[in-house]
Design a protein around this nucleic acid. Structure first.
Length: 424
RNA sequence: GGAGGGAUGGCUGAGUGGUUGAAAGCGGCGGUCUUGAAAACCGUUGUAGACGCAAGUCUACCGGGGGUUCGAAUCCCUCUCCCUCCGCCA
């Protein structure tokens, strides 16, 4: 969400951002509504001032004067009763449009309507040349008894999975490994609820634009968060923090839920795209300073790259285009990790800077040393998400006999050098 | 699930229809005093918005929403959250 004042003063810049991001926001309608709301507010405030003065006078008036004042007050009440509902309607409409206003993307972002305009900026590592016929991750799981998709579907429907034996333990080891990397980087480890309220989803930005991606529970009274970012971003909602408390650097491990509406038929097989997964998320709330935001962006990105390097996986760095980065993003860089069975890279990490877009929605503010109040800046990135990363880990590190090697960095967490078949 | 009690400014807490945007205390900030500090004393200290060159004036907000009234922190309805007790339970 942008500052309405900024939109008023820079309509062309906003119009450009809307175009670059391929949005359909009616900016003229928004500006018009804003004018109407402003004018109506002024009118109403004037009448309210009169009402207040009249009521105050009536309190002290002699009884014979009071009757006329009460009459006058009733008349004012009738005027307000006519105007106030109109204001409420207009304000609600304006708010809905404001929710759809985009962050202006950074000047370095590739401009284009979709992911085909994303730019590969770096590649790390080389895809492995197999001296045998490698299996895909589903085949590896079947061969070793590491999972059960059929029964998962029976129990939970499509896009569900069951991990068994060493693979189940491997997932736990990886999550703990990722948490430790975050702790080493100075982030505060947290567990947060997956159940969340509607307000938090508005503040995060997923509502109202991408409402269909979110599971509603309890008849729409609560929602299952698609990422811990939703919760972390709402932790300090409505607060005014001291600048000395910033930055807040959090990492959270949480189950994540995604309806995957609109992706029917894509990646239906295996662990690539599932309805429920686990993620260690990085989140930073820092002061409203572009340099500082940029520094955190680089820091978070390098943490994730460090994790992929420690996992000995080949990956590439993608500068995400304006049309693919989403409403609130100032900058987005994805890490894509090599999937041998698909002979291509697939997204495993997504690093985003949103400036004050989320902070405005959530009311994340701080007071600087001079006492001035600002909206903070927010950033987030994936540290590690399972089971998707298991796809890459299984396929890239498989041996001819079907066992899978564990990267040295994870061995202390897993306790063994290899994943072995489930004993039957 | 049942019964009851609450929600007021950074915190504690007064306030049941009329100069209350809100007493008092604590905390914070500025000052006096002091070699410095403490103590004491004095002053100041919510957020958002409108108008104005400014000084300043005005509006809204006492958990959220709605209502009654000339006038609501105070009365009514509703929702949310917190606390106590009972029941159930990982």
């Amino acid at each position: 969400m942008l500052d309405i004042k900024f939109i008023r003063e820079n309509p062309e810049a906003v119009r450009q951002a809307i175009e670059k991001k391929g949005l359909t926001l009616e900016l003229d309608k928004l500006l018009e509504l804003d004018q109407e709301v402003q004018a109506l507010k002024r009118t109403i405030e004037k009448i309210q001032a009169e009402r207040n003065a009249n009521a105050k006078a009536a309190a002290r008036a002699r009884p014979e004067e009071r009757a006329a004042m009460i009459e006058r007050g009733k008349e004012i009440g009738r005027q307000l009763a006519e105007l106030e509902p109109r204001l409420r309607t207009l304000e609600a409409q304006l708010k809905q449009l404001l929710y759809l206003t985009p962050t202006l993307p950074w000047e370095g972002a590739p401009v284009g309507p979709d992911d085909s305009f994303n730019v590969e900026t770096r590649v790390h590592g080389n895809p492995r040349t197999f001296l045998f016929e490698p299996l895909d991750h589903v085949a590896l799981m079947e061969k070793n008894g590491w999972g059960d998709f059929e029964r998962a579907a029976k129990v939970s429907g499509s896009r569900s999975y069951i991990l068994k034996g060493d693979l189940m333990l491997y997932e736990q080891a990886l999550l703990r490994f990722a948490l430790d990397r975050m702790i080493q980087a100075g982030f505060t480890p947290m567990s947060v609820p997956s159940l969340t309220k509607e307000e938090a989803l508005y503040a995060h930005g997923q509502f109202p634009a991408a409402r269909d991606q979110v599971y509603a529970v309890d008849g729409g009274e609560a929602y299952l968060a698609g990422t811990a970012e939703v919760l972390l971003n709402y932790l300090h909602a409505g607060e005014i923090l001291a600048e000395s408390e910033l930055p807040k650097t959090y990492c959270a491990l949480s189950p994540c839920f995604r309806s995957e509406a609109g992706s029917a038929g894509r990646d239906v097989r295996g662990l690539m795209r599932v309805h429920q997964f686990n993620k260690v998320e990085q989140y930073v709330l820092c002061k409203a300073d572009l340099d500082e935001s940029n520094r955190w962006f680089e820091t978070m990105l390098s943490i994730s790259e460090g994790i992929l390097q420690a996992l000995e996986l080949p990956y590439r760095v993608i500068e995400v285009s304006t049309g693919d980065m989403g409403l609130g993003k100032y900058r987005q860089v994805d890490l894509e990790t090599w999937v041998p069975s698909e002979n291509r890279y697939r997204e495993t990490h997504s690093c985003s800077a949103l400036l004050d877009w989320q902070a405005r929605r959530a009311g994340l503010r701080y007071r600087d040393e001079r006492g001035k109040i600002h909206y903070a800046y927010t950033l987030n990135n994936t540290a590690l998400a399972t089971p998707r990363i298991l796809v890459m880990l299984l396929e890239n590190h498989q041996n001819e006999d079907g066992t899978v090697n564990v990267p040295r960095a994870v061995q202390p967490y897993f306790g063994k050098e290899k994943l072995e078949p489930l004993a039957l």
